[in-house]
Design a protein around this nucleic acid. Sequence first.
DNA 1: CAGCGTTCCATTTTT
DNA 2: TGGAACGCTG
Length: 888
Amino acid sequence: MSDPFKRSFEPAPPAPAAGSITARARGAHRAPYLEGLNPEQREAVETLDGAVLVLAGAGTGKTRVLTTRIAHILSLGRARASEILSVTFTNKAAREMKTRIGAMVGEAVEGMPWLGTFHSIGAKILRRHAELVNLKPDFTILDVDDQIRLLKQLIAAENIDEKRWPARLLANQIDSWKNRGLSPDQVSAGEGATFANGRGRDLYAAYQARLKTLNAADFGDLLLETIRLFRQHPEVLRQYQTRFKYILVDEYQDTNVAQYLWLRLLAQRTSGTAAADLVLRDAALRAAPQDEAREEPASAISAPTPRPEEPAHSAGVSKDVAPLGPPKNICCVGDDDQSIYGWRGAEVDNILRFDHDFPGAKVIRLERNYRSTAHILGAASHLIAHNEGRLGKTLRSEGEAGERVVVSTAWDSEEEARAVGEEIEQLQRQGHRLDEIAILVRASFQMREFEDRFVTLGLPYRVIGGPRFYERAEIRDAMAYLRLVNQPADDLAFERIVNVPKRGLGDAALQNLHDLARARGVPLIEAARAMGTSEAVKPKPRAALRDLVAAFDRWRAQRDTLPHNELAEIVLDESGYTEMWQKDRSADAAGRLENLKELVRSMEEFENLQGFLEHVALVMDTDRGEDHEAVSIMTLHAAKGLEFDTVFLPGWEEGLLPHQRSLDENGRAGLEEERRLAHVGITRARKNARISFVSNRRIHGSWTSSLPSRFLDELPEQHVEVREAKGGFGGYGNAYGSRFDTTAAFGSSYTTPGWRRAQKSRGGFEEDPHEYSQVEPDEPAGRMRDVGASRAPGGGTNGAFKPAAARPAPSFAASSASGTPPRRAPVTIEGELVARSTGAPSAFSRGDRVFHQKFGYGRVRAVDGNKLTIQFDKAGEKKVVDSFLNKA
DNA sequence: CAGCGTTCCATTTTT
DNA sequence: TGGAACGCTG
């Protein structure tokens, strides 16, 4: 291979086709693993050179493509296992890939050291070069608890009222900065001001400094610090660029800006070129909220370490990035229609702009679905087609038509749960396995009602999600002990266990330790050592401190002689931690002891303590299989990637399935993400999808009547069966009656097909079947009702709302013509106005007085793109989209 | 430092 | 409505 550095200066050749042709010719004859792939899959596997984006719809064999591709690379001898970088988001996905590659190529999996999550690979790289980013190779990976505790201290140290500015909030803010690849110096002043009246950025910087002295990194750092390492040490970057001959990325639609930058750096053929920095500028521009980019172009746009030899690029240049040299062989697999993690920093833009970011990229669509029936796919496809920001795919079923998607309704959530329970029992009687049935909810509070009902019925169920094994208090405590044995300077671990079990070392004692430690510049445990012999300390705490320090000295001495799992047992026993739980009489104490045992047992699999600690921080996950057959209950988010024969989708109501908060905070983008969530839900089903909505739901204790989800309107008639629930509890007529009244009172006539179907289902009026055909995917505006504002008297289109510009006029004519009450002029949904990440800058800035139709007068507290945080005079602080505001 | 009352809040969550 | 988290009191 020629010198990669040199090559990057050559003009970008198109991705060489020759390679794949040869591969195909060879593969056709001698590769059994290629058998059974459909043509698109095969193309995705065999297109090895350059950048490839595989748009893999739900159930189209995404993992198979990824794993086969790796097998293909290996079997052609294109690269060794250690030269393939393969990243996933979850450990589960990584594990599955390992297993499946193992099944194909055998032993070589063990030699795939670079197959893992973004974070675990980031950690691996970082440990190798820790000293270059001011860490030691054995740095600690902090969990969220530690992070919050640390931030609390910093906030207190700054004399900021933690009530008003909770550490949690700051943690989220810092996290979101890290997600966007911003280090403290890159956070623009305007945005840095969002926390505690302008001290957010300083706190972030202080936090980072503190992490260094603690020799610790949080999850975000595993990526961000790696990026910094790569930028500041091109020779290190080059080493990895050379090593990784092929890069594969799973779930590309979920990547955030930091992950994108990380990938970009590695996918360059060489570092240090102007082109590479241009890319970074581009990404930084995308990452920085527009308003701040305007305020402070320099800080928002410039790369972190400006290279003096490079000419400064104007902002104008970075908008249209110069093409890069040929990218490495990078293959990203994803599905924009399944991007449901925007709220935690995922940038759909990454996938939407792939061919822009990687010029000459080949885009391959996988649209043959092997999972679901034609009815299910028809419904899902039609629904998702209402989204605008998508690359567009049409899933085709390779199976039979199957049954239509069933839509049913219930009076309230209790009855909904009852109906689902009955249906499941019936399925069970028909011989369906409970393992093949799932209930997918939008929000976890919905689960409770199902659990209650299933307990009553004696129907086995399993809640997926919830607190992870390593998030449990007892595991974290035990881990803190082990961390401290491993790393005396781990102050956060020390704080966690200094008084667990109770040693009479309360807040006061800890405060003294802190003071001393700070004064002397030593870790807490050293301060404890000093105070343990100091006359100034009262005898009782003095003895406690002495014992504690002595214990840790002892354990540390044993570290090299004892197997680490035995050591762990000794630590837990001698510290009194095990005893603490043995004495505890609460119901879950036994379970906690069990978990501790499990923890110790699982240590056997690791070579040393260090390796184990790394594992728990990054890898250990929740699904320790319960073996009995049970119905699964989980959130729609948790269901991504899973499939079941039968899927129940309860709670399709306005405000819950398009979740109100998503609409309020992210407007149109939020709505589209909610729709993707609905789409993910339906496509989990192989044979049966059963959607339901209720008229009344208890929210925060009080009953609220609800409207059917707009997504119901977006389901195509031919694939849907509206079924009247059996049982007759509660009186449906009543339900509809009252809801109809409510609707009328709002003045927004509810005449959409979904609604009318519902009417029909209880023997209401008949409607013209043509109605349904009016629901076309290309008519999104017409389907969107204004959610918030229309409820206010006289709400709707008014001065506060911008018109729905540049959208095709919705075809209302037909529905009016067919005798339905005339609908009002199209009302813009809040989202219409909302920014995508590349949207226009907000016209508002901090401090502006504003007026909001619903919340009244207020003042702008913070600006984040088009999302504003407003302190309303009456309604309190809210996040709103700027287009909902007028200047006051 | 434990226990109790009060207050506040209430999508989605991986690593 | 229900829980978690906090602050006050004994």
